[in-house]
Amino acid sequence: MIELNNISFSFKKGEPLFNNLNWSLQPGKTYGLLGLNGAGKTSLFNIISGMLFPKDGECTFDRNVVRKRHPQFLSELFIVPEQFELPPMSGDQYTQLHAPFYPRFDEQLMERALSELQVDSKKKISELSFGQQKKFLLSFALATRTKLLLLDEPTNGMDIPSKSQFRKLQASLDQPDRCTVISTHQVRDLGSMIDHVTILKDGRILFNHSLDEIFEHLSFIKTEAEQPGNVIYAEEILGGLHTIQPFKDGARNEFDLELLFNGVIQQPEKINQQFNGGEK
């Protein structure tokens, strides 16, 4: 669906952000794009959505170059940026003006999402709190039913019940053709929503595996304070350690996305080694 081939990008007068980056996104999957601040998550979203042009390489959506911003591509894309400013109009008016551009826009889903996230679409959007605005835009984004949905830090600014409500809403949707990419550094918020983990560091993809692959190759085990010998990465928790270990059949797997993220950032070679049959 989306192919990034040998993407190189740098801001004016800056260090290169991406150098020969390759990434492929498939329909029906929800990708978690994780990374530290400044890793290039937002820039990558802007390149995928055709809002930034790579210096070298190509990003294509169903084999069409995205930087050309063809309406057919744009009508299959919706992006919720981390920081956004919505026009000064009511939510209903925004929907009336923008929904016609999306061929599969689902009005019922829009109403359901607004109701579950408790957003009043009669009010002027620009006068709502940032969290309310975000919930409105997320509702609209889900209702567009585009093939590609990019969510940049979707839960930033949302209160705890709304985060939970959003997760439930997203999980309840049947979206076999949709590819959703969620970028975040708040990994705990979205751990239950994704089925593929991609970790970006210093403009490089450090880790890129589905949850199925992760469960086939790694075990997340809570242990006593003393570290067993084959621990790849460990973090102290109350009463012991939470560890990442090579896959152990029959062991109780207590997956923790934050632990995986920290492990990959600290020990990328050791963790990736497990996916290559334990060889360096």
Binding site: S49, L74, F84, E85
Partner: peptide, 9 residues
Amino acid sequence: SQMLTLPAS
């Protein structure tokens, strides 16, 4: 992004 990704040519 509102203008750049608006689905029109």
